[in-house]
Each structure stands twice: as C-alpha cells, then as structure tokens.
Design a protein around this nucleic acid. Structure first.
Lengths: 217, 217
DNA sequence: TTGCTGTAGTTAGAAGCTATAACGCACCAT
DNA sequence: ATGGTGCGTTATAGCTTCTAACTACAGCAA
C-alpha cells in the first residue's frame, strides 16, 4: 500500500464540510448569497452556531469554497462536452443548461463582484482551463479571413491564452463566444427578458453561429 | 400662481432623502450592496439609527430608490447620446463610460438578482424606454438581408417593442446590441479580464460594429 | 490498559445589524 | 391658544458573525 489514505477523522471532517456546503447551496438557491446564514446552516446540520467555525473559519471562507466548487463544476461540464464532440453551439447550450440548473451558482462566479474580494489563484487557474477548452473549440476551421484591428491588438496581448498557438482570430472568437453567451445568458437568468416572450435559447443560437468564420450570409 | 409648490417641510424631507441616498451610494461604491448599513448612513447624516426609518420604510425601500435612480440615470444618458446623434458604437461607449463611472451602480441594475425581489413597474417602464431608443438607433439602414430563424420567431414575439414598426431584423439587432454590450461590459467591470491585458473597449467596438448589416467583410 | 493529546462540540458573550415601540418636542393650521 | 402632524430621541427585541472559555470524547502511544 502506497498510502494509508485519509484517517477516519479526516473522512468525517470532509463529510461534515460537504454537508455544510450542501445546505449553503440550498440557502443560496432560494434567497441568494446575502441571505446565507451560518447560524441557520449550523442548526440544519445539527450543531449549534459556533461549532460550524471548526469547519470554515468564517463566512467568506465558506463562500470561497462554494465559488471554487462552482468553478470546478462548470469547468468539468465544459470539458466533458468538448471531449464529447460538442461544437460551439453545443457548448453554449451545455453551459446554459448548467447555469439554469442553479442560476445563483452561475452568478456566484459571473455576477456582481464584491469590491474588496479577490478570487483565490486556483479559481483563476480553473477559468484559464475553461478558456483553453473554448480556444480549442474555436480553432476548427482554417480562417484566412480579414484581420480586424482587434485581432492585431490581440496578437500583442495573448499571454492569457498561455502558449496556445492559435491565431489571434481564434482567440478573438473564443472571447466573443464567452462575452456573447454571458451577455444573453446572464440577462436571461436575471429576468431581464421577463416581459418579452421570445426564446432566449434561439437568441444564443444566433449569437454563437454568427461567430463561425464566413457563416454570416 | 397655479401651485403653491412643495411646502418647506416637503423640501426639507426631499433634501434629507437625497442626502441619505448620497451616502448610500458612497457605501455601495466602496463595499457593495451587502455592506450597505442603514445605521452607518444615519450616523453619517447626523441622526441616530431609527430616525432614518422616517425617510425610508426599510432597507429594501432605500435600495429600490437607488435602483430607480440608476435606471433613470442610464436612460437619460442613453437618450441624450441618441439625440446628440450618436451611432451604435457611440451609444455603446456612452453606456460603458456611464458604467465605469460607478460599476456598482451598473450591477445594481444588471448584476446578480435577488431571488425574491421584483423591480417596481416604473423601472421596467424605464428599461422599455431605453429599449425604444436602442431600436431607434438600430433601425437606420434598409435591411433587405436574410431573415434568420430568430427573426421570424421575433415577429411572433414583439410585444415588448411596444407598437414600434421596425422589422424583426431591427429588433434582433437591438437585442444583440444589448446582450453583446452587457456581456463584454459586465465581465470587464467584474474583473474577469483582469489577467488578460487587451483593451475591452476594442472588443466592444468589434462586437458592436459586427452588428451593422453587411458590415461583415 | 493506562494515560495523554488534539479535536469536536458546548454555552456565554461582545459587537454589529434591522426594525419596532414609546416618548418628547417643534411647527403649522385651525 | 390648541390640537394634530411629523421629526427626532432612547430602549429593546431578535437576528447576525465571530471569539473565548470550557467539557467531553476519540484515537494513539507507552
């Protein structure tokens, strides 16, 4: 045996932490992050108030853990869809479905930022991971198309893409995919399309298919 | 004289309400909505705690007033720019500048929604007003272009545009303008472009110019 | 088996928040 | 002058996060 594995106390601890996060998600889903109460969670878990601080140092640390899990979840979802052969439109709808499954989880990542808060480094690493998948998915066709001013600008600012060899036009497409999807999706989730009765999914379809080079009739 | 105008008490009351909102904006700008404390505001205004409840029934009502003012502000800004002859790209940058002036004010309207909260009717009326201006700004060229599936779908769901006579392609363009701008802008304001050193303004430029019919070279 | 140590839980309490209640005072109109 | 209305106060309830002090138990080592 290479490793003794986690001790029984460690396993217990991990399980309680998971249970706490589960109740936290339930609270957030139904009333948003501001209404998340450590006290209420503790009682639901079956312990009394301050005991919860043995598992999360404070409220921010719990929320950070939730943010981390949300990032991990969306990254896994996107990666799985990509490896399953989904094209850009497919990816867009996979992400949309993931978001609609729990809108507050989406907004935990992409919603209103808290002025002081800085996401931990590992979450930004995960978002780079997502971005890498998007670039991969955007780089399919040989794009000899016109180079826009932004593309030349991007060629000078492509560190964020790691050392990915994709041409600037592909990076541009990945960025546009991200921003267009987020634009329509977040407005949909926030209820800004409430009165209008059109299908947001169709809007997203057109926004994304409009990205493919030469697809604009 | 047709009207006696507001009484002195009413003027005083309005002025105190304005002062309260001013401090509220300051708090929100620096720490976000969750950190907004009626107690702290009251002390800054010079009164003690519960006195503030004479001016706003509760926390939600104060926030609602702020939301209303934010809607009014963006609507006036957009309308002024449109009447000043701004084109779509101009409008986009006017809105972007307005948002960057106070990101939390932007997120108060377009950020994470609070599950229970429903915006009052007059704010949705204001957002319709903005939409009308956008449609107006999108309707310039005679677009005999191809009708997309979404356009035909939109023709069946165009009540939200009031009785505006614009063709579905124009409504589509207005929607895309809104969602694309919001997508790039909200990610920029939330700091999701932090590591990447490209200029978000250029990305927005291309997203918006890509909207003009036939502009895709 | 005995004994030590660290962890998980407890209650008490400080400091903050929203919000209500009860009261005093000043102004305005009748 | 006098009653009513509105603005401010303090006191208080009930909630929150979070710390401190303490107890009890689980697990490991001699």
């Amino acid at each position: 045996m290479v490793d003794a594995g986690p001790s029984s106390r460690e396993r217990y601890r991990a399980q309680v932490r998971a249970e706490i996060k589960q109740h936290a998600w339930a609270q957030i889903a139904e009333a948003g992050v501001p209404a998340l109460s450590l006290n209420a969670i503790a009682k639901k878990v079956g312990m009394s108030g301050p005991a919860l601080y043995r598992y999360f140092a404070n409220r921010d640390e719990l929320i950070t853990a939730l943010i981390r899990d949300a990032y991990r979840s969306v990254a896994d979802t996107v990666r799985a869809a990509h490896e399953g052969g989904a094209d850009l439109a497919g990816l867009a709808h996979v992400i949309r479905d993931w978001a609609r499954e729990d809108p507050q989880r989406y907004f935990l990542i992409y919603g209103t930022p808290v002025p002081g808060y800085h996401a931990p480094d590992d979450t930004t690493a995960i978002s780079h991971e997502v971005m890498a998948v998007l670039i991969e998915a955007c780089g399919v066709p040989a794009t000899g198309g016109p180079v826009t001013p932004f593309d030349t600008h991007l060629d000078d600012h492509r560190e964020w893409a790691g050392d990915h060899p994709a041409p600037a036009a592909v990076l541009h497409r990945a960025l546009s995919f991200w921003t267009r999807l987020h634009g329509a999706l977040s407005l949909e989730l926030a209820g800004h399309f409430a009165g209008m009765r059109f299908d947001p999914g169709l809007l997203i379809d057109e926004e994304i298919t409009g990205l493919a080079p030469g697809s604009d009739g």
